[in-house]
C-alpha cells in the first residue's frame, strides 16, 4: 500500500454506524461557541455521498418550517459525536437531489421492508426465508446485519 493511502486510512473513522443514501439519520455534531462546547443534532434524509477515502462527505436534507435545509458533513470528522439511523430508505438511485424539487407526498421515501421486520413492526412475507430477528438491536444504534439474499416478490 502506498504511503499516501496508508495516511488516508489513518484518518478514517470506523466507529460510526453504516448508513446509506435514503436513510433518515440524526447527526450529532460538536459545536464550539467561544469557550463552550455543545452538541447539536440535525435530522434528515441522506441525499448523497461524495466518496473519496478520507475526504468522504455526505449530505443530509430536511424541511425546516417549510424551508429546505441541507448540510454537508465530512464523514470522518472528529466533530461528529455520533450518528443515529432512524429509518432505512428503500430507494433506487445514488443521489436524491430530486427531493429539492418535490414536496409533500412526492417527497416521501419508502421504508426498507426487512428493516421494518427487524424492528418487529411488520411480519415477514409468506415464503420469504426466515431470518433471525435481533431483539436487542436498538433502531440504528447497532451495526446492521449483512444484506439478505431475499428474492424479489
Amino acid at each position: 500500500m502506498s504511503l499516501l493511502k496508508e495516511l488516508e486510512k489513518s484518518q478514517i473513522r470506523s466507529d460510526l454506524p453504516e448508513f446509506k443514501v435514503g436513510d433518515t439519520v440524526r447527526v450529532y455534531s460538536r459545536i464550539k461557541e467561544g469557550e463552550k462546547e455543545r452538541i447539536q443534532y440535525f435530522e434528515g434524509i441522506v441525499i448523497g455521498f461524495h466518496r473519496n477515502a478520507a475526504s468522504t462527505t455526505f449530505k443530509v436534507r430536511k424541511e425546516s418550517y417549510g424551508v429546505g435545509v441541507e448540510k454537508t458533513y465530512p464523514l470522518h470528522s472528529p466533530l461528529l459525536e455520533k450518528i443515529v439511523v432512524k429509518k432505512k430508505g428503500d430507494i433506487r438511485r445514488a443521489k436524491l437531489f430530486f427531493l429539492r424539487k418535490v414536496s409533500g407526498k412526492k417527497a416521501r421515501i419508502r421504508e426498507k421492508k426487512d428493516w421494518l421486520v427487524k424492528k418487529g413492526v411488520a411480519v415477514p412475507a409468506e415464503g420469504a426465508p426466515e431470518r433471525p430477528v435481533e431483539e436487542s438491536a436498538a433502531p440504528g444504534a447497532a451495526p446492521l446485519s449483512p444484506e439478505s439474499t431475499e428474492t424479489k416478490e
Binding site: 502506498s2 499516501l4 495516511l7 484518518q11 460538536r30 475526504s55 470528522s77 472528529p78
Partner: peptide, 21 residues
C-alpha cells in the same frame, strides 16, 4: 511528492495537505 489529501486538525477542521516523502 506523493499527492494531496486532507487531514483534520485539533479543532476538527479540514486541512488540505500535500504529502511529501
Amino acid at each position: 511528492k506523493l499527492g494531496m489529501t486532507q487531514v483534520f486538525d485539533a479543532e476538527g477542521k479540514v486541512i488540505p495537505v500535500t504529502v511529501i516523502e
